[in-house]
């Protein structure tokens, strides 16, 4: 850090932080910690490998990766929609998560309120908590069913 930069940092208004080098340094420290986490996890639990793929032998418990489990489980749970017709469970099982993801994609256009602080948007916090709980519950259910 040269003198010009030092002067920059000192002359900043109180509420502002220079991106370089202050923020970048903190970010690099965070990266270093994550690198340590990666290597530690890899040493304790190395990536596994099952038997070679056999298209003729279906294993007992076929599951997708954890990040797809909630959608996968919802597709199974969607069987409750069978009173709407024979095709309804499969259709709604895919359409409902798809529509929810599309809504999330367009979130800035749906939530146009100007307030940003979380405490002034309690309904949004409540929605986040509910969605999180449902997704986590579906994931755990999917893991143990």
């Amino acid at each position: 850090m040269n003198d010009a930069n030092k002067k920059d940092a000192a002359s900043q208004p109180k509420g502002l932080l220079p991106f370089w080098p202050h923020y970048v340094l903190s970010e690099l420290i965070a990266w270093y910690v994550i690198l340590g986490v990666l290597v530690t996890l890899s040493a304790i639990l190395p990536a596994g490998l099952e038997d070679k793929a056999n298209p003729l032998l279906t294993p007992e418990h076929v599951k997708p990766e954890w990040y797809f489990l909630s959608v996968y489980q919802f597709l199974k749970v969607a069987a409750v929609f069978s009173f709407l017709g024979a095709e309804a469970p499969r259709l709604l099982g895919v359409l409902i998560p798809g529509i929810l993801l599309a809504l999330l994609f367009f979130l800035p256009f749906l939530d146009r309120g100007p307030k940003r602080p979380a405490r002034q948007r309690p309904w949004m916090l409540a929605l986040v908590v509910i969605v999180l709980l449902v997704v986590i519950a579906l994931t755990i259910w999917g893991q143990y069913s």
Binding site: L57, F68, L75, V94
Partner: peptide
């Protein structure tokens, strides 16, 4: 990436994963 090791888990996870797409109308 999950399919690439070509083990049982990879093969069958991809089979059920791609099967989900078949439910699209």
């Amino acid at each position: 990436g999950y399919l690439l090791p070509w083990d049982q888990r990879a093969y069958w996870a991809t089979t059920v994963g791609t099967e989900i797409a078949a439910a699209v109308p």
